[in-house]
């Protein structure tokens, strides 16, 4: 099998700047999104995710401007997410050059949006982001940046979004996000094995070993992280070199 495991830096965007919070709070400014994106592309990032965490009425416009800027400057695929809630939003972003969009809460609140977007723009265009938290024995889906718990389990929701036409799932473990203590490999493997579409693992990356674990034990197709890349704790080229040495297929 030669399909490479993907390394995806995630850039949280607020007011046009890159930020990253720890457990969704305490945001730190980490720079210009396009410059960051370019640097990552040159270092060997396989894809980029831009998550806009501003919540203004002008959102659609700022997202489309961001998509246009990124698309014209980068030669690797990228996803844009954050507050996308309608077919119109999706269309605007497609026309601005986004390769994929990521939808989280809006898809849960209106699941037929998944069917509609997949039908109109193709499954490849749609990443469903899921934030989940382990509560007692179940992994429960949370909405609105992790603030609102639902009554749905991660596995049930993963299966449903797959059936409705999602092209990929971006799973963030709220228990692990920002801890740098490793990904949620056990539940990650369960999600990966219960759906037919690729899974991007997010939340908890702290070292190169964590990526090795999530690709092997966690059976993830891609690993996503933010701060460890932004603050230079792990270089993407070094990470890929490490993974290759350990027998993981990566693009170098």
């Amino acid at each position: 099998m030669t399909l490479a495991k993907r390394i995806i830096p995630c850039l949280d965007i607020k007011n046009g700047r890159t930020v990253k919070g720890v457990n969704f709070v305490n945001l730190r400014d980490a720079g210009d999104p396009v410059e960051f994106g370019k640097a990552y592309s040159e270092q060997g990032a396989d894809e980029l995710v831009f998550l806009d965490i501003t919540a203004t009425l002008e959102k659609r416009k700022t997202l489309s401007e961001l998509a246009k800027k990124v698309a014209s400057n980068l030669n690797i695929p990228f996803t844009i997410g954050g507050g996308i809630s309608s077919i119109k939003d999706a269309e605007t972003l497609l026309e601005s050059g986004a390769d994929k969009i990521s939808i989280n809460s809006a898809a849960y609140r209106n699941p037929s949006l998944i069917d509609e977007i997949a039908k109109r723009f193709g499954s490849q265009f749609l990443v469903i982001a899921i934030d989940a938290k382990k509560m007692e024995n179940d992994w429960i889906v949370h909405l609105s940046g992790g603030k609102i718990p639902t009554s749905t389990t991660l596995l049930d929701w993963s299966r449903e979004v797959t059936q409705r036409g999602a092209g990929e799932i971006l799973f963030t473990s709220m228990n692990h996000d920002g801890t740098k203590g490793g990904f949620a490999c056990e539940i990650m493997a369960k999600v990966s094995q219960s759906v037919s579409i690729p899974i991007i693992a997010s939340g908890g990356a702290g070292s190169s070993e964590d990526f090795y674990d999530v690709f092997t034990k966690g059976k993830a197709d891609a690993g996503l992280a933010a701060s460890i890349f932004h603050f230079g704790e792990i270089g993407i080229a070094d990470l890929k070199g490490y993974l290759k040495e350990k027998g993981i297929s990566v693009r170098i």
Binding site: M1, L3, A4, S123, S196, I197, K219, R251
Partner: peptide, 29 residues
């Protein structure tokens, strides 16, 4: 489950011939 559908991501191209490829691209992602 090891081979997800759609096929998404970076994969190798091999046994290249024709005008749009050259030797340097053999086995590229």
């Amino acid at each position: 489950p090891k081979s997800k559908v759609p096929h998404m991501g970076w994969n190798l191209i091999q046994d290249l011939k024709g005008d749009i490829f050259d030797e340097s691209l053999e086995g590229a992602f």
